[in-house]
Nucleic acid binder design. Structure first.
Length: 291
DNA sequence: AGCCAGGACAAGT
DNA sequence: ACTTGTCATGGC
């Protein structure tokens, strides 16, 4: 899509229609944890939350036009970047199908894609993504959101009408025992040691971003206690624009077993494996489950 | 009430 | 290299 403002009304930016952006799926697909759907909205769909150190809303009407709520026109580039509006999902979706030579797999990819069309990978903060997915392990999405919310409330910087995501330094200074009081359970140690590592420079997220290969980035992340392949893959995919990362969780295991041959390697999805993964995850977790 | 959750890790085969 | 028990908590 071509990102541009069609009109403004106060702090509401009206952005045009896009066939490959679903506000609902993008904010419902489990990649971000600080957005909630607004009930009784004037729009067909509205999500409100905190990103880029600001409280912000995204909405969409029934014919697909979408709106940015609570932003000045001059801030549009920030939100355009956050939503990665420069990424051409039409082209990515073509390649996801085209690159799969096995017709069996192609059909699967097509159905997953169609069911999940409109999901965009957000450009989220690196540390927030890492920390959030450490919390996500062996956990459910409502509780993940609750823990993150209390983490922000207690240790996040005041950004006016909300709290920012806490810095590594803030969580390091808080200490493991204080984090445990937020009911994050066995993850308290993991959060703390990750915060310590990033805070004292033992782990440079800049270096993760500059990693030459997926495996190099993964190695840096999994060096942390409590960060395994799944959390590392989510962090790389959602926080570092590594679209080739393919996180395997219980839902993906399920869909792989159900619809793919045993020796199928998800990395054969290539440079956009992670986006294919999102489609598979969404269709299995949110569509299959509701049948 | 009990199973499960966008897992990781250590210990055991 | 694979399997299993454990970890803390609460959603459903």
């Amino acid at each position: 899509m071509k990102p541009e403002i069609l009109s403004t009304d106060g702090n509401v930016l009206h952005i045009g229609n896009s066939g490959d952006f679903s506000v609902f799926k993008t904010f419902d697909c489990g990649q971000c944890f600080r957005f909630d759907r607004v009930r009784n909205s004037d729009y067909a769909v509205e999500f409100s939350g905190i990103a880029r150190s600001k409280k912000i809303g995204f909405a969409q009407n029934s014919i697909g036009d979408f709106y940015i709520l609570g932003a000045a026109p001059e801030d549009f580039p920030v939100w355009s970047d956050y939503l990665a509006l420069d990424v051409d999902y039409g082209k990515i979706n073509e390649n996801i199908v085209k690159n799969i030579e096995n017709p069996n797999d192609r059909r699967v990819a097509e159905s997953a894609r169609d069911a999940s069309l409109g999901i965009r990978i957000l450009r989220q903060d690196r540390w927030e993504t890492l920390c959030s997915f450490i919390i996500s392990q062996n956990n459910n999405i409502p509780r993940i959101k609750k823990i993150i919310s209390s983490l922000c409330e207690k240790y996040g910087a005041d950004i006016g009408e909300a709290k920012d995501f806490p810095t590594p330094d803030a969580l390091y200074k808080a200490g493991e025992n204080s984090l445990r009081e937020l009911k994050c359970g066995f993850r308290a140690k993991y959060i703390y040691s990750a915060a310590a590592a990033v805070s004292n420079g033992e782990l440079s997220l800049e270096n993760v971003a500059k990693a030459k290969s997926l495996t190099d980035g993964e190695k840096l992340l999994t060096a942390l206690v409590g960060v395994g392949p799944k959390v590392a893959a989510c962090t790389l995919l959602f926080g570092f624009e590594r679209y080739d990362a393919f996180p395997v969780d219980v839902w993906i295991k399920r869909v792989l077993k159900k619809r793919f041959s045993k020796d199928f390697d998800p990395l054969s999805f290539g440079s956009t494996a992670g986006i294919a993964q999102q489609y598979l995850f969404y269709s299995e977790r949110y569509l299959e489950g509701s049948k």
